[in-house]
Design a protein around this nucleic acid. Structure first.
Lengths: 209, 209, 209, 209
DNA sequence: GACTAACCGAGACGGTACGTCCTGTCTTGTC
DNA sequence: GACAAGACAGGACGTACCGTCTCGGTTAGTC
């Protein structure tokens, strides 16, 4: 099962690991993922190539770890809950817009999204470690609102979350139009209109036709 | 003045053009975009490398043309209009789901999406030639419904379209969950619930046709 | 039979061939054969590595061609014939001593001899292209002397030649003692004593015991 | 003072020493000297790499020790003396031919000869420990014959020895022609003819032993 | 009907990076 | 402190492609 002979991770050099992760992140910002090479990472990190190949299966995997490593300390698995659902969602979505426009985050993210297209395994890990926790956090906030009676009891919260996140992702990923706080607000408003309980107290009916 | 000296497209070999386009499409299905090489395309097509470099700036551009070429004959710039808005949207979105699960379409598409992440120019062309026409078609169908009074007059149709298309794109691109006709229906239902005009005058019921 | 697909030698770049051969010869003098690398030759020659691998199977083969190339113009396939056999042989053997003490010749030669030990194919080529012609030239000179009656009719000239050349080669190759003109003379004298026709007119008898 | 800190040879593991020497000899026969690696020796011997680097300066040195170790028990520093000079020399030279055609001896020997070409220090040690004792043994046998009056008093015995050994070495090392007992005999005969004292007093007949 | 210009197939070229292998040093834990 | 084990920085290997550059050999279109 093991590859050739699995390396002994207890003897791994933390110094080298950090240098590699840092170098990868720096370089992806400087030259982009397409021109990012293992050799350049090794050279910048002052490390032998084998030390990279020993611990990671591909440059995408290196970048993924760089990415996780960078995001550490800000796990952000919970959305704020001030009681005002729309305001909470908008503030988080606006923050996401800001993040996606910051090259420091956007560039490595784009690289990982690109690589995931053709590397399903990387995609799966990206999903498990980054994406799902985030989607879960959104769903949790909506569930709270639902339990408080602000969202229709039969609304499909997963679909709602994907609608919010997916709209933004679509525009960002395909660059159809520039992102903006206004767009974030519009998304939240329109999604909530579809699932919110009407002021008259009765939930909006989905298929009354 | 343009490049070195622009090639004379009137003398271009249609035979070679077709062979290249076909070879590219075949190969991307066999080995994926990452391992697709110009040399392999040239060899498969029985063509000199220079013939590719003469007419295309990158392998992504070749694949893009292969892609357009394949989609020709089915311009699909209009959505059906049977009068039943929800049914029309669902049928188109279900067809999209089917297309995205067919490797013949999905693989080259993924390659182009991936490449667009790091190649904004390719992204722009993809946008102009493929994406925007499609989004416009969706918007047009919604506008018709709006003019017929089935959609709120103040609804932001662009946002609605991106919500529909974005939700599907998000799930497909990031492989968070498998696509399905049920998901297509759920998206349409929930989006329409947010913007439809109910028979009674309040914005609530989506499938009011 | 052919390797992958044999390169088209009519399109070979003479410029590159020369640069490679020159670089190899220079480098072997600077760093020795053990530390001679294909990469260094390529770099020094301003050539891609592939251009070396395309035309030569090993660095030994490159060096062999460098060697032949350098020796060209001085084919030296004939020994002088002044009528004085001993003097002729000594002058040639002394010249050989001088050559073997000149690093410019000695270093690449040592490299080829070393490599031949473990690469019989290279050894065979070295033999056919360099060694045998030389041994033949010696044998030819002895044969002339034999026909003139200065060497016993039943003497084995091949053995005599190998004895002359082998003695020198042994001392040079294994560095048992330094080479010298005196040693060259001693070899020639002793070998000739074994095969020469005695002044009394009768050839020395081999097995009169 | 000497190196870093000289290892304490009294604590050296004889078990490891033997395993390394054996592994080296095995491997050189299997893959040749060119592809012989320290790592492979260590792995085959079940030994850490450092244990090799601690006790030997190069893989040639390891092989040299393997070689000496193998030849132990057969010091053979004396040539037989039956009274028949030619017969004695021929029997020893024939045995040498047999040894040189036995891959078990020939392969490591070739490796050491090859390495000596470019590593004069190794050459010197090979000379001192193996070659000179052998040449001395030959010279001793000739000297006995000389003192018995069978060889001319003014003959250069060293040259004669090198002529015998060199001829064989030349043919073996450069593979100009296959070795044979006949060649061994021919060498001895021709050399003796050059230096022997004939019964009649003139230097001519070799097999007068 | 020859001339000429360009595209074409082919593939050699100078390069860059790949992923593997080995070097010689260093580190860790065992005996 | 020698040892087995093996991670490390470094560097060469031989291969695969890159994008550029000739090299004949077909086609057009022009004199």
């Amino acid at each position: 099962m093991a590859r050739k002979t699995a390396p002994d991770s207890s003897r791994r050099s933390e110094r080298s690991r950090r240098a590699i992760l840092d170098a990868a992140l720096e370089l992806v910002g400087e030259v982009g993922f397409g021109k990012l090479t293992i050799e350049a990472i090794a050279a910048r990190a002052g490390v032998g190539k084998q030390t990279i190949y020993r611990w990671w299966p591909s440059k995408a995997a290196v970048l993924f770890d760089s990415f996780l490593d960078q995001s550490d300390g800000a796990p952000e698995v919970t959305l704020p809950d001030t009681g005002d659902l729309a305001a909470d969602l908008k503030s988080v979505l606006r923050a996401t817009v800001d993040e996606m426009e910051n090259p420091k985050y956007a560039l490595p993210t784009r690289a990982l999204v690109a690589e995931s297209q053709n590397d399903p395994e990387l995609g799966a890990e990206l999903n498990a470690r980054v994406l799902e926790p985030q989607l879960d956090a959104w769903a949790a906030r909506l569930r709270t609102a639902q339990q408080a009676g602000h969202i229709a009891a039969d609304a499909d919260l997963r679909v709602a979350v994907e609608m919010i996140v997916g709209s933004l992702f679509h525009r960002w990923s395909l660059r159809t139009l520039p992102l903006s706080h206004g767009y974030a607000d519009a998304i939240v408003d329109q999604v909530l209109r579809g699932i919110a309980v009407s002021p008259s107290g009765s939930p909006a009916e989905p298929s009354a036709g």
